[in-house]
């Protein structure tokens, strides 16, 4: 092949519309393959190189920064409608590398790798000296708050027994002394008010996930639990995720599971 003078790739401006299209396709890919944690939004395009690809098309080698939104990964709300978590809520940033193929005007992700990290405590303190910080998810107060909230939710729920899927976020609030938690649940084949041993309950084949937010407040004579769960529409039984070496993103969160439900799905209202 004739030697192509120069670096072999073309430079593009990071704010070029074509670059932005590639970056948005990449973030859509992440959000539709995220299995735990929260959806992310594009925040800044750091670098881009465009390599020619034989026989046709181009590959965008792109580095982007994202910010966590307040929508859980399996929430059917379109990511574009999800608010970016504010600095004072202890924001979380994603750093992602992608290879995005552009062919016949279409963008498709060939490779994705993302890592996420919370903002520093100092930065949160700068914007809000009294705001609570993210707490370690294995903190005993967090585990207790989730357990109490899930028990309260199931106790008032006359349908399926819901079991914990993951604790997504937690904060220890200094005043009033309380623990704030956000966690994901899934319906099982047990009836909530008949469960004797939750270990005998199994997730439904058609997954029905929910997302709960709860505050456990310490009182003089005990503790108060306030919990609100939003149950998402059932998910069709999904084929096993690609595992034949296709580069699925290094999840920003711990583990993998089914892709998020179709965005058109109508959400079941919040259940308190």
């Amino acid at each position: 092949a004739p030697h192509i003078p120069g670096p072999g790739y073309r430079e593009l401006n990071c704010d070029d519309p074509e670059t932005e299209q590639a970056a948005l396709a990449a973030v859509d890919y992440i959000n539709s393959n995220l299995l735990r944690g929260y959806k992310h939004a594009l925040n800044q395009i750091d670098k881009v190189k465009v390599w020619p690809r034989r026989p046709t098309g181009e590959v965008f080698e792109i580095e982007i920064d994202t910010l966590e939104t307040t929508c859980y990964a399996l929430d059917p709300t379109p990511a574009a409608n999800c608010s970016v978590r504010k600095l004072e809520q202890h924001a979380v940033e994603g750093d992602c590398d992608f290879h995005v193929l552009k062919q016949d005007g279409q963008f498709s992700v060939l490779f994705a790798k993302c890592d996420s990290s919370p903002d520093s405590a100092e930065d949160v303190r700068k914007v809000c000296p009294d705001c609570p910080l993210l707490a370690p998810l294995n903190d005993s107060r967090v585990a207790h708050a989730v357990e109490a909230a899930l028990a309260a939710f199931n106790a008032r729920n006359n349908g399926s027994y819901y079991q914990l899927v993951e604790v997504a976020r937690a904060q220890i609030v200094p005043l009033p002394v309380s623990t704030y938690v956000e966690f994901a649940v899934a319906a099982t084949d047990c009836v909530a008010n008949e469960v004797t041993d939750p270990a005998n309950c199994n997730l439904l084949a058609e997954k029905q996930y929910g997302f709960c937010k709860s505050t456990l407040t310490q009182k003089v004579a005990g503790e108060d639990v306030a919990v609100t769960c939003t149950v998402f529409p059932t998910q069709p039984v999904l084929p096993q995720l690609l595992t034949d070496g296709t580069n699925v993103p290094t999840p920003m969160v711990a583990s993998a599971g089914p892709a998020s439900p179709p965005a058109a799905a109508v959400m079941v209202g919040p259940m308190v």
């Binding site: 990071c14 704010d15 939004a41 594009l42 925040n43 800044q44 924001a91 940033e93 520093s120």
Partner: peptide, 27 residues
């Protein structure tokens, strides 16, 4: 500035292509 004849004058500020604009905030 007025360039001396025969001296190359920079064609104005070079637009730094990357990193691009920040859409929300930087942490």
């Amino acid at each position: 500035g007025v360039g001396q004849p025969g001296v190359a004058v920079p064609a104005g500020p070079v637009v730094r292509p990357c990193p691009g604009r920040i859409r929300h905030f930087k942490i």
